[in-house]
Simulated scan of single mutants.
Amino acid sequence: MRGSVISSVRNPGSQTFLAKEHAVGIVLAPARKLRASLGSDRITEYDAPIGCIAVNPAGVDSSLAWSETRKNLVVAIPPQILSELALQEFDLANVELEPPPFGTVDLIALGIAQRISVELTGKATPNELYLDSLVTLFSTHLLRTYANNMRQIPSPRGGLSAKSARRVEEYLREHFTEKVHVAELAAVAGISPNHFIVRFAKTFGMPPHRYLINLRLDLAEKLLAEGEIAIAEIAYMAGFSDQSHLATTMKRYRGRTPTELRYMR
């Protein structure tokens, strides 16, 4: 899972800890006269209604004391996982969480937390895949609502966004041995085909066709070095129409033919 979750009912008590992961608590039943601190010795006393949220960023010490039985759910998210999610979904880096004031109610977070709690406390064995999807949903909401100091990764001027470039690159690496059309790649990037080639070239330093050829030649060279497969078969496996097409292309872009390359190694 992309984090861990704990649903608990705790008797009156207190705790102090230094969070190694981003820890977020959601109150599932009203609690009165909580005494809490976060990142300092200053104690704040407050009443916590259902849906009250406490965000404790990784590396920040905190304390909490409560005089009544309390019911809550805690979601712990490793900083690396949250950063990866921010990069993947929002093209954002250097993510930091800004805790809201004590007593803040977050109804969206409450809804997700209640679903997690039901899954954890039900009679059936919790479904890990379902819990993982809920934790991801919770983490996405956390980024949208409580992240600050986020810097969007710049893309080359006039090029693809970091997110689009990553998607296109992944698509090409998965389909480079097939016939790939510019319209397909433009759809993956989410832009019009008319603008795609120029923006791709500004991002990757070459047009899509050349990038595709490089991927095919890299695979062909790897298979040639292994020396176990016939050159004609390698041509087919790497996405070339025939052995002659492979030889012509490799000579043009790599300076040698498949036969020369095989006997050089």
Rank of each mutant, 00 (worst) to 15 (best):
M1Q: 12
M1P: 08
R2M: 04
S4R: 14
S4G: 09
S4K: 15
R10Y: 03
R10H: 11
Q15T: 06
F17I: 03
L18D: 02
L18Y: 04
H22L: 04
A23M: 09
G25K: 09
I26S: 00
V27L: 10
L28Q: 05
R32S: 07
L34W: 00
L34K: 03
A36K: 02
S37Y: 05
S37I: 07
D41C: 09
D41S: 12
T44D: 11
E45V: 15
E45A: 12
A48T: 12
P49I: 07
C52A: 14
A54E: 12
A54F: 07
A54R: 15
P57Y: 10
A58E: 14
A58K: 08
G59P: 12
S62H: 15
L64Q: 06
A65G: 07
S67A: 13
T69R: 13
L73G: 02
V74D: 06
V75A: 01
A76Y: 11
P79H: 12
Q80W: 07
L82W: 04
L82H: 05
L85I: 15
Q88E: 07
E89F: 00
E89R: 01
D91S: 12
L92P: 00
V95I: 15
E96I: 11
L97R: 09
E98P: 00
F102Y: 04
G103D: 11
G103E: 14
T104P: 02
V105H: 00
D106W: 11
I108D: 05
A109T: 02
I112K: 00
A113R: 06
Q114T: 08
I116R: 01
S117D: 15
L120G: 08
K123C: 08
A124F: 05
T125V: 13
S133D: 11
S133W: 00
L142F: 05
R144I: 05
Y146D: 03
M150P: 04
M150Q: 13
Q152K: 14
I153E: 07
S155M: 07
R157D: 10
S161W: 01
S161N: 03
R166M: 07
L172W: 00
R173G: 10
E174W: 05
E174I: 05
E174M: 03
H175Q: 15
E178S: 12
V180D: 06
A183W: 10
E184N: 01
E184Q: 03
L185C: 10
S192I: 11
S192H: 13
P193K: 11
H195E: 04
I197M: 01
V198L: 13
V198P: 04
R199L: 02
A201W: 00
A201M: 01
T203H: 14
F204M: 05
G205K: 04
G205E: 08
G205H: 07
Y211V: 03
N214C: 13
L217E: 07
D218M: 08
L219T: 08
A220F: 09
L223M: 11
A225K: 12
A225F: 09
E226R: 15
I229D: 09
I229K: 14
E233C: 03
I234V: 15
I234K: 14
A235R: 08
D242L: 09
Q243Y: 08
A247P: 02
T249W: 02
M250D: 04
R252I: 03
R256M: 07
E260S: 13
R262H: 14
R262W: 10
M264S: 14
M264G: 02
